[in-house]
Amino acid sequence: MRISFTLNGEPQNRQVNPFDKATSILAEQCGQESVKTSCAIGRCGACTILVDGKSANACLLIAAKMDGTDVVTAEGLGARADAIIDRLRQNGAIQCGYCAPGLLISLVALLERAPDGDKLERQELETVLAGNLCRCSGYTALRKAILALSS
């Protein structure tokens, strides 16, 4: 079947098979290597993308479901992510970086959702980010960076 969607603002028209996952279409056909596959069962968050503004695990998404949606990957975040990246840099929150694009998407979704001036609670941050595994960092610098950013 053919599907059309926008990817980072660009219209796409792709031939997909019924069993294709969004991960393989985005990474292999659309060259979005930011969409990584690590667990492929929705546990690690390495494949996180935005679909119509909400974060989603691409590995759990049937490619056909992207039809008619607006998809954003870490590669397409542009200036939306500048402030977050700055904080993560200052705190040294990223190491090998394999988790990083998925993490960045989750953070953008989380911080853009929080109404202006609303302070992000530690528990909310942890609940949302528990779906983004990072094996390197121990999360300490990440938590510090983001809680400070939102306050």
Partner: peptide, 22 residues
């Protein structure tokens, strides 16, 4: 000074790991 090189590229997904970009 950064903790790691390529931090921004890693976050934005443009950093290439070895099994990528065949």
């Amino acid at each position: 000074m950064n903790a790691v090189t390529g931090l921004e590229e890693k976050l934005r997904g443009t950093f290439r790991y070895l099994a990528e970009g065949q």
